[in-house]
Amino acid sequence: MSDLKEKFFQVRELTKIYKMGEVEVHALRGVNLELYAGELVVLLGPSGSGKSTLLDIMGGLDTATGGFVSYRGKELTNATDKEFTQYRRFHVGFVFQFYNLISSLTARENVSVVTEIAEKPMVPEKALDLVGLSERLNHFPAQLSGGEQQRVAIARAISKNPAVLLCDEPTGALDSQTGVVVLQALERINRELGTATAIITHNVDIAGMADRVIHLSNGKIAEVTVNKVKKSASELQW
């Protein structure tokens, strides 16, 4: 499968060291991986294993200390701030554990914030429909449940039609039932839009819905497993 699909990300010997005074924290210790178009990858690992750091570097939110990262053949490790901004704005969608919605804007308006500056956006209503919130367009975040707020955040991330969707613990703040609904939304987007999706989680049960599961431990990739039979998000429970 991997050989046929476009290689979106190529990561080679990626290292990241955080300096805290005289103490050096090695968050990544030589990571190598690829992410292909349209695939759904779960990055699995305990807290402190380097998952978020890896995703931040791939998403252009942070820079590596060493190694090499390229997106569709273009090297990110030496990109300028302007190039990073363009990259984040037009190619990558982010979903975080906390929804970061603007409380004074409705669900539709929160999505509009992105569609107004994106190159080829979908209409906000369509994005919200994809996450099952077509009935909640004019609700403010305070009027939505946690799961609904996270789905608004997903709609906002996908409304610019990104090639890649990076999700950092998208169900971390949700109960299992609501988490499944959110994962269903991600699954649908991956399936219908073909958006390459990387989901960070420490929840082993979520790994079942991935094409590949990348296990991180202590800043390194410990294991990569391929799910021969993917589970549907609705089958997941924890």
């Binding site: 804007l105 308006e109 107004e116």
Partner: peptide, 11 residues
Amino acid sequence: MKALTRKLWRE
């Protein structure tokens, strides 16, 4: 009106 302008006035 842009969403951020609307945000400004609303806030």
